[in-house]
Design a protein around this nucleic acid. Structure first.
Ligand SMILES: [Mn+2]
Ligand SMILES: [Mn+2]
Ligand SMILES: [Zn+2]
Ligand SMILES: [Zn+2]
Lengths: 153, 153
DNA sequence: TGCTCGTTCGCACGACTTGCGAACACTCAC
DNA sequence: GTGAGTGTTCGCAAGTCGTGCGAACGAGCA
């Protein structure tokens, strides 16, 4: 995602208005590596702008996504995450606390996949499931946060 | 997933009853490579057993999943898919028609991933997004089915 | 056959997201 | 600076997908 200043220009160039709500979200998202949910952004935004609506957060996120400034990522269960990093990269997900981190993967071109039967893949998505460092250090059974589903294979 | 006959024994061995509804779902799922949704299974099951409840379909799928006979898979958007193939494998998803196919990927162990920062991955999930053979043959814009979201990176 | 306990099923509810439209406010022309 | 005009905000209703609940039911066993 571009900087708040650049987005301000980009929005106006498209005939879109630059409102205080949008500016706030530009700031909250720029450089954000948390992969926040809409609710999480709404909570943070509300602290700074008490009247802001969750509806507006969803709306602005959709606008940014349609402009290619934002990536929407969904992992198995739970709400959609929003990712201002639109470069090609992948993710590690902690199935205990739900934390998501960016990961860069090298060697994807060397993967051998079959059978494709005429299927034409355009995007290879890799998600590593497991435990983050903090969660790996604690009991395997303890959990205070609803876990994210993990494939059983 | 094991055969309907084996599942019948496995259910009774656990003190679970083998009802006509369950037997029907055992049959509909065994060897099924469609990655069907609960609704899709409900529709198929209803043709054969008109009174069956969607609630029972969900319930039985959850039972099978908790026994490790079934894998639940979610792709970006849309409802959960159920996969009787619990071997380690991966998926290709047509973002136009939503079709899902199994794919086996070789070379995963050679992938280089960084930075992991203490994260301990246990499962590597690979999803190839693109167009199935049938959809690749038609107009890129034509669509009669709501597409599955595709990551923008 | 009859008892018992797990199952089924309809309905209400929950989580997450989107549709809708009236009130509002950013822009720009003047 | 002011006003007109168009895009935006926001609350509420509705939509989608899935789960909690409990009364009626029926599979399995003595
Ligand atoms: Mn990311
Ligand atoms: Mn599969
Ligand atoms: Zn964690
Ligand atoms: Zn297709």
């Amino acid at each position: 995602m571009r900087t708040p200043t650049e987005l301000t220009e980009a929005f106006r160039a498209r005939g879109l208005k630059v409102t205080p709500q949008r500016q706030l979200l530009f700031r909250l998202l720029h450089g954000n590596t948390q992969h926040p949910t809409a609710e999480a952004l709404f909570a943070t935004a509300s602290a700074e702008m008490p009247g802001i609506s969750l509806r507006t957060v969803y709306q602005t996120l959709a606008d940014l996504a349609s402009m290619g400034e934002l990536q929407q990522v969904a992992f198995g269960s739970g709400p959609t995450r929003f990712d201002p990093n639109v470069d090609e990269h992948h993710h590690v997900v902690c199935d205990r606390c739900g934390a998501v981190r960016d990961v860069w993967v090298d060697g994807i071109a060397d993967l051998r996949m079959a059978p494709l039967d005429g299927f034409e893949p355009s995007v290879t998505e890799i998600v590593l499931h497991g435990r983050c460092a903090a969660c790996a250090a604690t009991e395997p059974t303890a959990s205070t946060v609803p876990p994210i589903n993990q494939p059983t294979s």
